[in-house]
Design a protein around this nucleic acid. Sequence first.
RNA 1: GGCGGC
DNA 2: GCCGCCAACATA
Length: 420
Amino acid sequence: MDRILQFNVSLYSYTPQGAEQLYKQAEMIYYRLRLYQILKTKETLSVDELKSELGDNPLKHLLDVEDNAEVRLARHLDYLSHWTLKIAYSNQQPMFFMKCELRWFKTRFNNMSHDQRMEFIKKNNLNLTPATDTEKSNLKLWGQNWYKFNFTEVTLLVKLRLYPMYKGFIFIPEHKLVFWLTEKLQKQLQSSLVHCRKMLPSTCDQLNMLINTFELVQPYSDTTSRSFKLCDLKKNVEHFPLCMKFQYENLEKKHHLKHFSRVQYGLFLKGLGLSLEEALKMWKTEFTKKMSERCFQKEYSYFFKHQYGTVGSKIKYKAQCCDTILEQSVPSGFVHGCPFKHWDASVLSVRLREDDVCDEDVRKILGLKQREQYRAACTTYFQSVCGCKLDDVIDHPVKYYDKSCSSIVDIEDLVLSDED
RNA sequence: GGCGGC
DNA sequence: GCCGCCAACATA
Ligand code: SF4
C-alpha cells in the first residue's frame, strides 16, 4: 500500500485489501466515472485542460507535481476506484475501460518529474536495459539515455519504425518510456479483466448492487451507430445468412420460435440495429397469433428486454458468431444452428437448389460440409447467391449481412458504369 | 429453454 | 400459480 501512495501512477497489480465504507465507495465510483466521461468526450486534452475539466474532482490531484496529504488521499482513491470499475466494466465494455485507463496512465506519467518516473520504474521491479556503449556508437544513439527492448514489449513503437531496431530489439530514448509502460499495463489489464469477469458471480452482493446503481459511461458508436427498421425487414431478409433466413421463415410460418432460436435470431437482429421497441413489436405480433397478449407479456417480454440489456444484469450482449452457432447442439424439432452443419446433406441440397445455387456450387458446398468446413460452405453459398467473391471466410452472421448488402451496391455500381 | 425465489 | 435472471464476444 505504501508503494501505491508513493506515485501518481500505478500498474494496479494487487487486489486492494480491506473494505471501504459503502458511501466512500460510491463516491469513488462517481469520481472515476466523471473522469471517463471527460476522456470520452474530449479526444485530446493537455494536462491543464484536463485539470480544469476535472474541477472539484479529487482525482485532479494526480496531476499535481508536489506530494502532500491531499495528493496521497487521491492516490488511494484512484487505486480503489480503478478496481471497482474494472469489475464493473469487465462484463460490459472492457475495451472502453482499457482505453480510458491507458490514457489516464499516460497523461499522469508524462506529467511526473524525471526522477519520479525512474523511481517508479525501479520500485515496480521493472527491468530496464540501458544501451551499451558499443550499441550506442554502432546505432548512432546520441544524447540522453537509450534503452533496449524486445520487439514484443513495445509493439506500437516497432510498428511506427521511428527508432533504431536490431535483431529483434528496438532502442528507445528515455522520454518514450511511457509506451513501454502502457503496453505493460495493457497486458496486465487484459488478463485482469478476464479474471474479474470470471470472478464476477462471486463478488459480494453489496459491491454488485452498488455498481448497478451507477450508469456506467458507455463508449460512442457501438450499437447506436447502426439502425435497422422493422418495416424493411422483409426486403432485407435476402441478405441474411441461411441460418438466420431460416429463423425468419419459421417465425413467419409457425408464428413461434423456440428458445435457442430466439437467442440466435434475436441477438442477430439486435446486432443489425433493430431497437428493443421494434423487436418487441415484431415478436409480439407473431407470437400473439397463437397466444394471448397477456401470455406473451408474462412469458416472453422479459426475455427480450434482458437480451437488450435493459433489465437484470444489463449486459450488452453481442450477436453470436458462427463458431458459437456451430457449437450448438440441435436436436430434431429445433430450427436453430447452422444449416451447413446441422442439416442433413439431402435437406440442405434441396434448399440450395431452391435458392438457385448452381450444381457445381451445390457439390462444392456438400463437399465442404462433409469435410466439416461449414463456414467455407457458407462462404461458397454467399458467392453463389450474391454473385460476388469474398476474400475472407464468413465468421459472423452480421458480417455476412453487411457483405451481402454491399455486394448489391457493387453490382449496382457495375450496372451503372455499364450504362454510360 | 434452463436456473432461481415465493 | 406468481415473479426475476441468463445467454454473447466480429469489427476497421
Ligand atoms: S456459417 Fe455462420 S453465417 Fe453461415 S449459416 Fe452457418 S452460422 Fe450462419
